[in-house]
Each structure stands twice: as structure tokens, then as C-alpha cells.
Design a protein around this nucleic acid. Structure first.
Lengths: 129, 129
DNA sequence: GTCGTAATGATAACCATTATCACTATCATG
DNA sequence: CATGATAGTGATAATGGTTATCATTACGAC
């Protein structure tokens, strides 16, 4: 039904090549810079398609959605509200407890998103000064 | 510095009077219906102010922000992706583990948001049929 | 080849939210 | 009370991420 086109392959390669969390605009800009111009609408559709294929993951932030590689173990995110740095972490017990909490409410879980906000190591030191 | 004006009091009363999770538009509509017309910009500013006062809480969803009463114990949310129902839950151990995970990465936590997606009890039954 | 389906890309439209700006309300105090 | 400083209001314009539209192009099956 859906196709993995040249443009989508380019988006996928770009995202797979780093650990960054990309937004649509950054993807478009990077591809243009790499000599593979692509329409912004195509980027949005491509990102949505790749995510539906399970080839990339995403986090929904307050202002925009960001995409990252999917070939990593499940993890959640800590975001520095000062510098924007995104740190990944995972905690099996938390996952298990979430399942338990959902079950207690009769919820059939399909996904979740845990985002923690604060100051990263670097910015915490900066604040001390 | 900031004031608790008539309009803001009206917003606060409205939110305190139920367990709903309101978006800005719903608040404006409800106040108009209640005979207390209010500008939409005032609603946005009022909601932000009330949250900064600690008088209401919020959850940031993918499309919009929703506000609820703050006079409840801390909790997170489960959202039914089928009917939109929002269920609240809390889990002390999860909170504790989050703090631990943050500390391990050198993060100074200021807040977090855990949202779980799935099908609520009612919709799960509906899907069986 | 050719038909049907999907994708592309430029652009318009959408929609929640924020900024602007003229005006009003409130407070402190001289 | 008058006065000025500050904050709030509300109509509306602007912003910005995302989605819809639509004509055109690419791909796959037969």
C-alpha cells in the first residue's frame, strides 16, 4: 500500500545516521543542504509514514514533534529547559509499574510518553556560578 | 505583581467546579454561556497566570493544552485514543524512580509529564463486540 | 503500454497560541 | 481626591507547526 520512496529513504538515512532528535524543518533543511531538495509537505508525510512503518520513533513536545532512530531500545526523555539538550534514559521498573497502573484502571495500553523537565548537568553547573 | 481579577476568578471557579480537563476554547465558551463573556486572549492569559499561581494544573497534549483543578494530589494521565476519556492515576514508586533516573544523569528535575495512551475499559469492551 | 494507486511539491488553509495596541481597572501614596 | 505607575482586557493581527488541496509524476501489476 505505502511505498518507501527515494525521498523517504533519504529521510530515514538522515535520521539513522545520528542520535539527534529532528523536527520536520531540520530534516528538510539538512536534505536540501545535502543536495537532495525535498518539499516540506513531503517531509511531514514521509516522517509520518516512516513512523507508521516502525522505522523511526517520535516524541511530541509542546511546540513540535521530533523524530529519532527506532533501532534503539525503548527509552524516555529528559529535556533541559535551559539549553534544550535531550537526554535519554530507560527504566524497566517504571515500564512495568505503568503497565500495572493501567491494568488497575481497566486500560489496554498502546503506548506512553514520559518526558521529564529540568536542568542538565552542564546547565546546573552554570547556574551555580 | 500579578492580580487575581474578576475574569481570572471566574476561570478558576469554573475549573474548580468540576473534574474536567478544559482547553481555552471550552473555558471561554462556558463563561459566555454562564453570562460572563470573556475575550479569548484573556482566557489564555488567565489560564497561564492561574497556573503560575499554582491554582490550576495543566497537561500538554499533542494538539492543545488542557487545564484542571490543582487541589488534588499529584497524578498523571491515561488517555483513551478512541473516545478521548481521560483517567487519572498516581503511583508513588514511579515518581521516586523518576527522581533516581534523573539524578543518575546529573539532571535537576523541575517537572515531568507522563501520559499513557490506550483504550479505556468501556472502549475495550466495545472493541470486543 | 496502460490503468490504478500512491507520492510529490507548491501553496493555501487550519488552528492553537501569542503579540499588538488602545483602552480600562487597580493600587499606592503625595 | 488626584495622579501616575503598573497590570489586565479584548479585539484583532500575526505566528508557526502541521495538514489539505490539487495538478503532476512515479511505480506496480496485468
Amino acid at each position: 500500500m505505502q511505498r518507501l520512496t527515494v525521498q523517504r529513504q533519504a529521510i530515514l538515512d538522515l535520521i539513522n545516521a545520528s542520535n539527534r532528535h529532528w523536527d520536520a524543518d531540520e530534516v528538510a533543511r539538512a536534505l536540501v543542504d545535502a543536495g537532495a531538495p525535498i518539499g516540506i509537505a513531503t517531509v511531514y508525510r514521509g516522517l509520518a509514514a516512516l513512523e507508521s512503518f516502525g522505522l523511526i520513533d517520535s516524541i511530541q513536545l509542546a511546540d513540535k514533534k521530533r523524530y529519532e532512530r527506532a533501532d534503539k531500545a525503548h527509552h524516555d526523555h529528559m529535556i533541559c529547559t535551559n539549553c534544550g539538550h535531550i537526554e535519554e534514559f530507560s527504566h524497566d521498573t517504571i515500564e512495568t509499574l505503568q503497565q500495572a497502573a493501567a491494568a488497575k484502571k481497566g486500560f489496554k495500553l498502546t503506548g506512553h510518553q514520559l518526558v521529564m523537565f529540568g536542568f542538565c548537568k552542564k546547565c546546573t553547573q552554570g547556574l551555580d556560578a
